[in-house]
Design a protein around this nucleic acid. Structure first.
Lengths: 193, 193
DNA sequence: GTCTCCCTACCATATAGTAGGTAGGTGAGC
DNA sequence: GCTCACCTACCTACTATATGGTAGGGAGAC
């Protein structure tokens, strides 16, 4: 069991690098340095940088799937938990979602990376869509609302990254919650303010 | 007048590269190739890659300022024009905003670039804030709404970039419009659907 | 003459990736 | 118990190429 630790360590370090410096902003040397092994040793675990990047995205997609399978029962709580995922797990203000981190460099990343990015997006949008479908008041617009919430979270993350302030993320999300509440979908618990 | 053309051409090509490949995804060689001159000639116009990047962002900020000074009189139309700016000028689905393109690589870009990114963001958020302040119904939440609209547009751009479909941008923006309308701010003209 | 704009030729460094080797562990056959 | 083959996980040393950037020169305009 201790044997797989290095591989997991590499994946963890790489994910962190992607989230803070984007895919184009880190090198195999950076990964090696942070893991504490030499660069060529990385090739024992991953054949190319592309493969490592793809694996990080797949792991993130799987992790989201697992997370989605074990969260709160009501739609309102599910949505709140989703916002918290962005706020805490993705460290809004100082980090990006792995998918969002790759999008700006789209024209110079390999096809397999693009596919993996889309998978991570799809997983989230589909889950959100199911959440909105569960409530009859939002069922008709479930797909559109899902796309909206995903984009808004990504944008809030991007915007907060520019200022470096989590508060800016919170401000945007508060508006997203208010928007959904205003439509009387009743999915977002009223915040105290 | 023809003398400044090369400089402008460099800026235009670079802006396009940043929007499609991000700051870390292009090289001086790429710029030189597209402009049609040799790489060292670029250094006659810009001392470093950083300086070129900063100038692109400053130009974008100025361009937005000029655009903002000459748009429609009513708040509703101003907002519509803003969405159109993202949809058409930024070519939603196949390109990013220059500011949004730099944000994911935040931890490995120089301080001057960061400042320039923030300026472009601030310019937009402040303008949006003035737009919302102009209407008594949105005055109280002008700042929050401005931050929300900016983030939502950036997110819509990012999300559409992943799928490559402008329609995904449109879907998100339709929800943003609906959200503002639902709050009865009356700022967004009803769409036919 | 000198200033603008571009050139060829070059440099140090960093990049992804390779070649080839070593230390230690595991299991099979005897 | 012992050897032998094979494996994993890492290493040093290296290659080709691309990167941002420099030195210095040439042709034309004022």
């Amino acid at each position: 069991m201790e044997t797989s630790t290095t591989r997991e360590e590499i994946l963890s370090v790489t994910r962190n690098l992607i989230q803070t410096r984007s895919y184009l902003g880190f090198s195999f040397q950076d990964v090696a340095d942070q893991v504490g092994i030499r660069k060529p040793s990385l090739y024992h675990h991953f054949p190319t940088k592309e493969a490592l990047g793809v694996e990080v995205l797949h792991e993130a997609t799987d992790a989201f799937r697992r997370w989605a399978a074990t969260t709160s029962p009501t739609a309102a709580r599910k949505l709140s938990a989703y916002f918290d995922l962005y706020r805490w797990d993705l460290r809004a203000g100082s980090s990006m979602c792995p998918a969002g981190a790759l999008a700006p460099g789209w024209d110079c990343i390999e096809p397999k990376l693009r596919t993996a990015v889309r998978s991570l997006r799809d997983e989230q949008v589909q889950w959100l869509s199911r959440v909105f479908s569960a409530d009859p008041r939002s069922r008709r617009r479930a797909g559109e609302l899902a796309a909206f919430v995903f984009a808004a979270c990504q944008g809030a993350l991007l915007s907060a990254r520019m200022t470096g302030a989590v508060e800016d993320f919170d401000t945007v999300i508060a508006q997203v919650r208010a928007a959904i509440r205003a439509k009387r979908f009743n999915l977002v618990p009223k915040e105290k303010s």
